[in-house]
Each structure stands twice: as C-alpha cells, then as structure tokens.
Amino acid sequence: MSPLMIAGHEFQSRLFTGTGKYASADAMMASISASGSELVTLSLRRMDLKHQSDNILQPLQQHGIKLLPNTSGARTAKEAIFAAQLAREALQTNWVKLEIHPDPRYLMPDAIETLAAAEALVKQGFVVMPYVHADPVLCKRLEEVGCQCVMPLGSPIGSNMGLASKPFLEIIIEQSQVPVIIDAGIGAPSDAALALEMGADAVLVNTAMAVAQNPAQMSLAFKMAVESGRLAYESGLGEKRQQAVASSPFTDFIGSLS
C-alpha cells in the first residue's frame, strides 16, 4: 500500500481521526492506537480558569501522533485566522484543519469565508486542510490558492449518513491535484472502504468510532476497511456492466449427453 504524502509529510495510515466525544482520555487513546491513525484533530477553547481539564496532549505526543488543530467555533474568516494563529502557538504546528460553520444545526461549512481564510493562511505559511462541502469548483479554487489537500464532506458532521455526496466526491477526486480526504458523515467501515475504493486519498472519522459501544474495536474495523479499500483501489477494480460475463469457460459437455 503506497504511503500518503501531504506537504512533504508521509503517512502510512490513510485513516485520520478526531479526539472528540470519547468517554475518557484512556478510551480515546485505546481507540486511536487501534485505528493506527498518525494524524488526529484537536480543538481550542478559552481556558476554564477554575477547573483543570483532561490532559490529552501528553499521551498523543508520547505515541508520536501528529496533531491537527481545527478552527471549530469560528464563524468568519477573521475568526478562523485568529484561531489558526492561536493553534499554531498552542500546539507548535503550522498545520490547520480549517473549518468555518456558522450554523449550529447542520454545521454546513461556509464556502466564501473558507476560501478567504484559506488564501490568507497559506500566505502566512500554514498547511491548510479545508473542510468544505463536496463542491468540485470550490475544491479547485482551494487548490489554486495553495491548500495542501481538500476535505469535502460525505454528509453532515456526526450524521452517520455516509457518502451522500458521492457523485460530487467522484468529480472532486477525478479533478484534484492535491490529496482528497473525505471528512464528516462516515458512519460505518463500509463507508470508509467505499471512499478509498473510489480513489479518495484518506478519510477522517471521529463520531463513528468515539460513540461506538466498543470504540477500540470499531477503530480496528475502520482501520481494516480503509486498508481494504485502498488495496482494492490500487489493485484496479473491474468496470460495472449491464450484462453477465461468465467466470467459467463455456464447454459443450452437457450437449455431448444428448
């Protein structure tokens, strides 16, 4: 299985994960370890001065996992740029998952603000990974302004609806010169396998793993599905046809009975 390159960084695993929604830091670590993921997302928030929060950074760093801060909570390009600058300081990385979704009900990414922020952040030296709608035109525009990959959604965040945007993801994958990482909505390992079979370079999965009854086992299932999907893609899948094509040779031994 070929490695994935993003901004000069090589990944053996094509499964990226999030750190949200886990019952505990231990459950999160067990799950991420089982997934084999080498890149995980984190968020930033204003520090609670009265309470100590769980330290999830240390175990992640001990396992050598690359951190990808997101700009979740940003509603405009300006806020997202500020969040990215804070994240760069907090986590000492110039990688950022750019997400701007002002509407809390559907969490749909704002294309106009995202493109503006992406362009500015690339100029400031960030490796920008934008979370966007499965919009082929927008994905090309983001590539043109210097994003190192694009992250179109399969379906709404946390919805488990899988690749509802499949026809548009196919166009994005066909056109893209940068890696395509399908983010959001992937609810089952079969969704992830399909994404990789279609030629997506990676997937990002959080909710489906974190809220499973057995998160670590579900993460292993996703790992296997992603590897399976990628292997199938690299092996060359057969074309779909309207008619049957025999898998066994036609012989005339039945005819010889008459």
Partner: peptide, 10 residues
C-alpha cells in the same frame, strides 16, 4: 488577556 487551551475535538 485571553488564554486558550487545546481540548478534544473532531
């Protein structure tokens, strides 16, 4: 002064 911390997130 605003202080931010990293937390779990997707």
């Amino acid at each position: 002064v605003f202080i931010f911390e990293s937390i779990a997130g997707g």
